[in-house]
Every structure is written in C-alpha cells, then in structure tokens.
Design a protein around this nucleic acid. Sequence first.
DNA 1: CATGAATGAGAGTTCATTCAT
DNA 2: TATGAATGAACTCTCATTCAT
Lengths: 211, 211, 211, 211
Amino acid sequence: MELGKVQQAAVACFAQRGFAATGIRELGSAVGLNSATLYHYVGGKEDLLLGIMNDCLSAMISGAKQALDGSTDPVRQLALLVAFHVGFTATNPSTARVTEYEMRALSPAARKQMQALRDAYEQLFADALQAGERQGSFSTADLGIARLALMEMGTGVSHWYRPDGRLSLAEVQLNFISLAMRILAVPDEFPLPPQQLPVPQVIASEPTSKD
Amino acid sequence: MELGKVQQAAVACFAQRGFAATGIRELGSAVGLNSATLYHYVGGKEDLLLGIMNDCLSAMISGAKQALDGSTDPVRQLALLVAFHVGFTATNPSTARVTEYEMRALSPAARKQMQALRDAYEQLFADALQAGERQGSFSTADLGIARLALMEMGTGVSHWYRPDGRLSLAEVQLNFISLAMRILAVPDEFPLPPQQLPVPQVIASEPTSKD
Amino acid sequence: MELGKVQQAAVACFAQRGFAATGIRELGSAVGLNSATLYHYVGGKEDLLLGIMNDCLSAMISGAKQALDGSTDPVRQLALLVAFHVGFTATNPSTARVTEYEMRALSPAARKQMQALRDAYEQLFADALQAGERQGSFSTADLGIARLALMEMGTGVSHWYRPDGRLSLAEVQLNFISLAMRILAVPDEFPLPPQQLPVPQVIASEPTSKD
Amino acid sequence: MELGKVQQAAVACFAQRGFAATGIRELGSAVGLNSATLYHYVGGKEDLLLGIMNDCLSAMISGAKQALDGSTDPVRQLALLVAFHVGFTATNPSTARVTEYEMRALSPAARKQMQALRDAYEQLFADALQAGERQGSFSTADLGIARLALMEMGTGVSHWYRPDGRLSLAEVQLNFISLAMRILAVPDEFPLPPQQLPVPQVIASEPTSKD
DNA sequence: CATGAATGAGAGTTCATTCAT
DNA sequence: TATGAATGAACTCTCATTCAT
C-alpha cells in the first residue's frame, strides 16, 4: 500500500463529497485500510489534503514553466500556457478541482503557503499577457478581466472533459487556444502547431477512474 | 427576526467555509439566535440550503427569461443573457457561489430537483447559441465548448467582482458581452446600448457585506 | 377545551408510546392546542401525569371500598373486590395501564404519594384474604403469592379486554371470580349473583376509543 | 469489556427508568465507558434493545420447548411450561420485564419480528391447554381467559420474587403449578415431582444484582 | 504494518418550559 | 385564552485522533 493510493482515494472522495464531508473512516475503507492505519501514511486529515494540493500546484507551476520554454514570443507563450492549463486540468480533473475548491478547508498557515503557489502560477499568465500587450499583440478592453476569464474557462474544463468524449485532448487544447486568441483579438492563425502542444502528466493523486 | 436574515447569514457562512464545515450553532450565533431557535425558521440544515438554492435558481431562470424578452435576435439575446448572467453573479456573488458549489451537499432527491432548474437555466443559453448558429451569426469550432466557456467565465465573476472596485457593474457586463462576441466571432460592434443592459436584483439570501 | 380532553389525549399517548417517549407538542396537537397553551391547563408534564394517576388511584380505592360495603363475609368481599378490579381495569384500560406502568416516571416525592395510594388499594385485598383465611374459608399454600397472582391476573385484563369482544364485561367478571375461588379452594358455587356485580365508572382521563 | 456487560447495564437501566428515559451517556457511565465507545459494541440504542429482546425471547422459546420434552401428557406439559415460565421470569426478572414492556419502543419492523417470537412462545401454552382440554383433563369456563391469566400471573413474578426471599425458586414454581392446576380444575395431586422441575438459566443480559 | 478499543469534542436535532404579546 | 418566539439542556450519534497490542 502506497501513499499514492491513499491520495487517489482521498481526491476521489474530496472531489465528490468535499473535504469537510468526507470522513477518515470513509477514506480508509476506500483503500481497504483501518482508519487508524491511515495515520501511518498521512499525519492527519489536513496533512493529507495539504500534500495533495502542494503536489498539484507544484506540478502546475513547473509544468507551466516548462511549457513557457517553448517560445519567447508572448503570443505563443500565452498559447502554450492556455494549452498546458487546459491539458493539466483535463488530465487531472479531480485533483485540480480539489486543489481549487478546498483551499478554504486549510488552516490559515497552510492556506497562505498554498495561496502563494497559486499566485505564482497565475502570475505566469499575467506576465505573458502583459508582455504581449506591451508589444501590441493583444487588444482588449481590460487585461485583468481577460486573464480571469481565460483561467476560469480553462479550469471549467474539469467539469465536463472526458478522455473518451467527443473531442480529443489535443482538440480541446487547440480549441481553447483559439478562444483565447479571439478574446485577445489576435488574428486567427493558430500560433501553435499541434505537435508542439504541451503533453500533460498524470499526477500521483489523480484517481484512475471517476467512479 | 426574519427568514431572510437567517438565509443571509447562512449564505455568508456557506460561501466562506462551505456547507459541511458550517455548524448550525455557528449560523445561530451569526444572527444572534440560539441554535434551537433556528428550527422555528428552518426545518433543518438541508432545508435551509435547499430554500436558498431554490430561490436563487428560480430568480436566475425568471431573470434570464425576462432578459430574453428584450429582443428576438439571437445575437442580442445572447448578449442579454451574458449581461444578465454576469450581472446576477456580480450582484449575488455569495448566493450564486453557494448555489453552484453545494449541489453535492444535497440529498439525492433534492439534488435532482435543483439540477433540473440548473439545466433549465443553461438550456436558455444553449437555445440562443443554437439559434444564432443556425442563422449563421456565430462562428466557432465547437458550440458546446463555447457555451461552457462562456458560462464558466461569467460564473467566475463571483470570485473577483467588488461593487466598489475598479470597474462598474455596467462596464463589466459590457466587457463580457464583448468577450462573448469575440468568442463567437461576431463583428465588433456592441450589439447592446448600455441602457438596455438587464439590471439584476439583489435576492433575499445575499448577505449585505462580505465580512 | 377542558382538562378532561387533555388528560384523555395524554393517557392515549402515554399508554401507546410511554410517558418519556411522548412529547408535549405531540399532546398539544392531539387536542388541537399549541404546546404553550397546555401550560394553562396543566402545570407541566409531570403534573399532568400525576393528576391522572391520582384520579385513577383515588377512584380505585373509593370504588373498591364501596364494593366492600356489599357484604361482610370475607369470601363475598373478595369476590366483590376481584369483580371491581377486573371491571375497573376493563373499563379504564389505558388509564389503569398508565397508572401502573409510569410510576417510575414520577419524581421521588410524587412517587411516594402514589405508591401509598397503590399500597392502600392492595391492602384492601390483603385484608379480605387474611380475614377469609382466619375463618378457614380459604386454603392455599401461600397467601402472599395468591394475592399477587390474583391482582396481576386482573390487571392483565387491560391487555386484552375489548368492550365489543367475545365476552361481556359481566361474564369476564364472573369468570375471574370463579378463577379466584378456585385459586383459594372455595367450593364451586358462585358467591355472587350477577346483579350484585360492582358496576365500574369510566373516569375522566380514559380515552373514548383506543385508536 | 464485553457486550454482555453492556447488555446487563442496559437492562438494569431500562428496567428501572424505561428505554426512552435512559440516555446513552447514562448507559456508558454505568459500565465505565465513554458514550462513543458504546458504539463499538452496539450499533445504536435500538439495536441494543433489539439484541437483548431477541436473546431473551429465543431463550424463552428454546427453554420452553426443552421443558416440553419432559412429558407427552398435556397436564404435565402445562405444569412444565408454567414451571419454566415462572422459573425463567424469576431468574431473569429485569430482562423479562424489559422484553415485555419495551416492545413499543421498537421500530415497526423490529417490533414485528419480536412480536412473532412472543406469539410463538405463547402458542406453546395455548397448544398444551388445548390438548389438555381435548382429552378432558381441564375444566374451565373460558380457555382463553385461563391462558391469559396463567401467563400474566407468571410474568408478575418479576415484580416481587427475590432469590433471597421467603420462598425458594422451586417452592414458587411448585406453588404456581398448584395455582394453575386449580385454575384448570385438575384434581389436587402434584403432577410433577420437584426434581423434574425445569432449571432455568441466567441469560447474558440479566444484571447480577438489582441495585 | 496493522488494528480494535477508546475518547473528548462536536455534529444536527428535539426537548420541556417560559414569556411577551 | 391562546400563541409564536425563544432558550438551555439534553438527546443520539459521528468525528478525528491516539495508543497499546
């Protein structure tokens, strides 16, 4: 029995019922463990959540940074960020949702840490947008709103994307790049060839099936 | 002491800490009432939530339908819907968030009812989009994604809009109409004069200040 | 609205669900009264029970004493007592049962009072038995056991007697006299002509129908 | 700490104060356990009662059947049944009383189960009585009343029998056999030698002392 | 590595009772 | 006479957590 299995079960439960509504015994029986045994793998309920969120946000930041390496052009960078964000969210929907929703369940100290990571991640988008606007590539009434709208859109993917759905992951990514370009009034040529789309990784806490 | 006050306190708590993490005593003391007294006004914790969500979704549906009356042109209708959605969400951010987030906290029977209302609301958007596409006003790779992205964007407003913020409500509404038009590739003239923007109502359960 | 109605409703509930399991609101709605209004008629839940039991035991004692007046012969007196006891229990089954079962629900002080009444009632039987034995009319291995058995038997009538049942009240009374005579080894002639059977009264707290 | 101890404490409390009036904390402290710990041994308050009643009624049925094996003569069978009933009740007075009194505290489903057991037990008496009557051994005005009176008498033993009292258990048993024979007008020779009296067992839920 | 037993705290809910109206 | 509002205390039950085994 490894920590990953526990995290997967936790994420599955937290995504479905919420952190506060999920009992520690429930988690235990989901992995076939006595509730007391869980305390050998995780230091407590909050520690479990904190570990999951920390892994998730770290993966998002490092993944986004890696995606950014694909270009120095702000337009392409934004496209890469959007594609990564959508990709990550679609690949790790439960973990991403838990990470977003359950920030409030953390104690103040832990929340501050996680919020800092979240801010760092969002700053990557803000930077690309600002760079693009400075060089005149983007045109929008309010850059702040555009950024928030872009991120919210991408995050929303976790609500509906299914790997076996109508659209492939790459299609969804390209689609969202297209939406982003429109929002920013970038002329409608794809700034990114499909083979350059960031390929997201499944992280350890993401449950295999959403049942 | 009226039901509205109780609902407001409940929404404030539920939005901040979540339904499951909010105790009934906490709610009581938030309105200066003994926990037992709450049961004079409310049949139970879930009934309280259910009442709030039902009022909210009903207001959203009737408000959206009323907004739709402003025009028969799908493009303008979509603009009106977006403006209403953003307006409602910005005006009732806590209630809207609770209504969206806490669906999972409901018992299966109640959840089905509320989900039906939510579906009815979203269908209004789907209908306008489809009508517009049929008449060739919209151009997008995938209409489904576009709708989801639009709604998610609008819902996200509850996360950041402040009445005393940098932008007025009307500005935000117009901004989102503009985003929507870009997403749907409608040529960039505002389809709606500002004085035709739907003016959203504050519903009873929305707390006055977000303290 | 009179006290009697409240007592009847109370007895009906107490007999069915028990004193502790019956709520004051339940009683109120059974007579169409707000729970607070009940406090105009009765000083509290225990006072209500106490009043019922006091009335019942008083009626039993005075009824038994009156029955005793029918003869000075211990054998006939015992027959009269048995007939009265059975008659009273069959006529006021719910009140009699509540009076017997719920002694334990009383506070110590009140219990002592009621127990004293109960003891006085039972003493009437003990006296008749002793008198009969002294004059050699009864023959039994243990007079104490005989008395307890006799009373228990009679009390049990409340469990099964129905006014519209197979046997009339007089038949049941005669039957129990016969049983008593056998238990005490009195030769088998009826010591009591049917027209001398004590006719029991319905007391105020006895509910009309047992629904 | 075993289930039996918990049952004993429960029976002691239920017999004294009644099921509804007994709190779960009260039970816990009666066995020196935290109220939460009780739920390791018992699934809930009603489960606890149900278990006790089920054990008791099962023991009564099997004990009575075993007693019946002592003879094929209905008269002796009835004597054996009466002796067993009195013996069981005197040996397990609290459990027997709780089992009889608290049927009403059960939920409808559970009550039906227990009532069926109770009916099966009483049927054993009804069968013996009927068999005896068919062969002309019994003479009574009404067999139904006789049976009810017999059982009620025996059950009443729980109210007054004390192991250290004036009469030994065997004496009480013989006494009740004698009463039964008189009630049924069987000529007065003891149908049962004392050494054939059924010896009742103490069941697990019966508290050791009635303090 | 794993667990049953144990617990204090707290959950949602109902209680009998009071009181101003 | 009647009631809605209010409350402290208690209810049954579940929680996260600890610890000896």
